[in-house]
Design a protein around this nucleic acid. Structure first.
Length: 586
RNA sequence: GGGGUGGUAGUUCAACUGGUUAGAGCACCGGCCUGUCACGCCGGAAGUUGCGGGUUCGAUCCCCGUCCAUCCCGCCA
């Protein structure tokens, strides 16, 4: 082996005249007959090396047969390129290395796609050869940024007296929340471990242990369906603290995100992030993770409807429904056809029954349902909402949840259609005062919005029995540009209150004891008030890199059907293994 | 579980209203070339059109089913 003296990214004019050695992959070859140029690549960069028939026939003949992605080592002299041959687009473009010694370590079959161009192949093919895709400049950069981010996170917390403590990967299956990935036990036949959806209970126990300030960069697993920003296994920055209140955790989370954005992107986020309540978010944006990079707020349309002749909406209001609207610029972009498309989209995915509209053109409201609104009401709408010329108002009436969801989705769609989003903007916010529970129609019971250990808002506890749906919790999310970056809560640290909540959630005493008895028990031995949060680390890195795909920041990701195309997992196991585990496949 | 899009040479794409030899770039193989950097020029090899069925004289194209990828809805405490 030729031991390298330099990487492929560091030679410059200053090195001219030096004898150097390099190792790397062949990124490109250009054979000019009796002169061969090769771009040699490693993760630091590329350097052009030159073989000449005249100066070394033996090496030249070997070089002729070299192909893309062969791995070689060379020894040679750094020379300045002739002026006309300088490549300004290349960091090492002013020099060449004239090869004197050559070792071929490993020849490559023709690669299944072009390593210089990540777009040269469909994702299915790239995932199969993920180890080759990781050679691309883009993914190498992504892995570098991910490393820098995780290092920064560890330093950040360590400097603040937090301890990183590892928690088990094999744990107890819990009833609430996402589906567990489950691991059979050989020793205890018929019993199963679960992989953690998050280390929630462990970090609370660590608070009982007096660990005080805990963090962990930790893998979590959820057996649900996946998306561009969701993988079956993902990484959280998990945090828990004793003797804290919500403000303190929000301040800490703000500081972490601010420092990450500063460190990695050199972007200066505000000292304090905007804070909105859950209610305000839903009312104004129809979402609990609004993208604030553009305005277009939703507004209540009921007063106008009540003064109109539009029976459909009036009916909806009579039945305790809701009518809301938003104003979108560039009405000329909304032909009947486009509006129909938007309507179909909202019907299909967001349960809306229709999409009403009217345009403000030539100083008056026109088209759509405008004829149902008398002139004075039309004027009032335009004045109240400061509707600009050539705008279109979209209106939806239905039960509140459908109205907010559909208009929230429409808002995002219009924001993107009208290019209202500046890609270089960063709009972080905290969403607070989430409801503690929500009614789940399918199972006919209350179900925790955050998780069952979340403390109710102290002011609302007396409503717990009469009107649980209105109880706010001490839970909070952090949102950036429409992505949920993380969330957390102040926890219950009193076993009686915890028992109360389990009861509300329809978890029987027996089940609570069997599933969470250890936690309740721990709370009877001096549990400090505590709270914390967790950040989606992959999502943070994804945003830092300007990507919209979580697969871009995970070295070996799974597909949306949770398989690995590279190693074909999950796969069958043999009968021997099944027998050992006392499992039978039906 | 549901919907949209895609699957043709190693790869990225093409192939008219169904039509007989399924084409092109890159990669690969052979030849020529001393300043290239998307090197250039000449030649060659390369196909179960995802898979299974159907309609038809004839299917890459139309129909049914199925698999895979991807995006979205449900789901994700």
């Amino acid at each position: 082996m030729i031991k390298r003296s330099h990487t492929c990214g560091e030679l410059s004019e200053n090195s001219v005249g030096k004898n150097v050695s390099l190792n790397g992959w062949i990124s490109k070859t250009r054979n000019l007959g009796s002169l061969i140029f090769i771009d040699l690549r490693d993760r630091y960069g590329k350097t052009q090396i030159v073989f000449s028939e005249e100066s070394n026939k033996q090496n030249f003949d070997i070089a002729k047969s070299l192909g893309l992605e062969d791995v070689i080592g060379i020894r040679g002299m750094v020379v300045r390129r002739p002026n006309e041959a300088i490549n300004k687009d290349m960091l090492t473009g002013k020099i060449d290395v004239e090869v004197e010694g050559l070792v071929v370590y490993n020849e490559s079959k023709p690669p299944p796609f072009d390593i210089n161009n990540r777009d040269s192949s469909m994702e299915e093919n790239r995932l199969k050869f993920r180890y080759l895709e990781l050679r691309t400049a883009e993914l190498q950069r992504n892995m570098l940024v991910r490393h820098q981010a995780s290092l920064h996170v560890r330093n950040f917390f360590s400097e603040k007296d937090f301890l990183e403590i590892e928690t088990p990967i094999l744990m107890k299956s819990t009833p609430e929340g996402a589906r567990d990935f489950v691991v059979p036990s050989r020793i205890h036949k018929g019993r199963f471990y679960a992989l953690p959806q998050s280390p929630q209970t462990y970090k609370q126990l660590l608070m009982v242990s007096g660990m005080d300030k805990y963090f962990q960069i930790v893998k979590c697993f959820r057996d649900e369906d996946f998306r561009a920003d969701r993988q079956p296994e993902f990484t959280q920055i998990d945090i828990e603290m004793s003797f804290v209140d919500q403000e303190e955790i929000i301040a800490l989370g703000t500081s972490l995100i601010k420092s990450l954005w500063s460190k990695i992107l050199d972007v200066d986020l505000p000292e304090k992030f905007l804070e909105l309540t859950y209610r305000e978010c839903i009312d104004m944006y129809g979402s609990d993770k609004p993208d604030l990079r553009f305005d277009m707020k939703l507004f209540d349309f009921s007063d106008y409807v009540n003064s109109s002749d539009f029976k459909t909406f009036k009916e909806i209001l009579k039945n305790k429904g809701l009518v809301k609207a938003l104003v979108c610029p560039n009405s000329q972009n909304y032909s009947r056809k486009v509006i129909d498309q938007l309507t179909d989209y909202l019907k299909r995915y967001h349960k809306a029954k229709g999409l009403a509209w009217m345009k403000y053109e030539g100083g008056k409201l026109d088209g759509g349902i405008s004829k149902f609104f008398p002139d004075d009401i039309q004027k009032k709408i335009v004045d109240d909402q400061s509707v600009d010329e050539n705008s279109i108002i979209f209106i939806i009436g239905d039960i509140p949840s459908v109205v907010n969801k559909a208009l929230g989705a429409l808002r995002l769609e219009l924001g993107s259609r009208e290019n209202l989003i500046n890609k270089s903007d960063w709009c972080p916010l905290w969403v607070t005062d989430f409801p503690l529970v929500e009614w789940d129609e399918s199972s006919g019971r209350w179900h925790a919005l955050h998780h069952p250990f979340t403390s109710p808002h102290s002011g609302d506890s007396e409503m717990l029995n009469q009107d649980p749906g209105r109880v706010r919790s001490l839970a909070y999310d952090i949102v950036m540009n429409g992505y949920e970056l993380g969330g957390g809560s102040i926890r219950i640290h009193d076993s009686k209150q915890q028992a109360n909540i389990f009861k509300l959630l329809g978890i029987s005493d027996d089940e609570a004891k069997e599933k969470f008895g250890f936690l309740m028990n721990a709370f009877s031995y001096g549990a400090p008030p505590h709270g914390g949060m967790a950040f989606g680390f992959d999502r943070i890195v994804m945003l830092l890199l300007g990507s919209t795909q979580i697969r871009d920041v995970i070295a070996f990701p799974k597909t949306t059907s949770a398989t690995s195309l590279m190693d074909n997992s999950p796969s069958k196991i043999n009968d021997e293994q099944l027998k050992e585990l006392s499992l039978q496949i039906k």
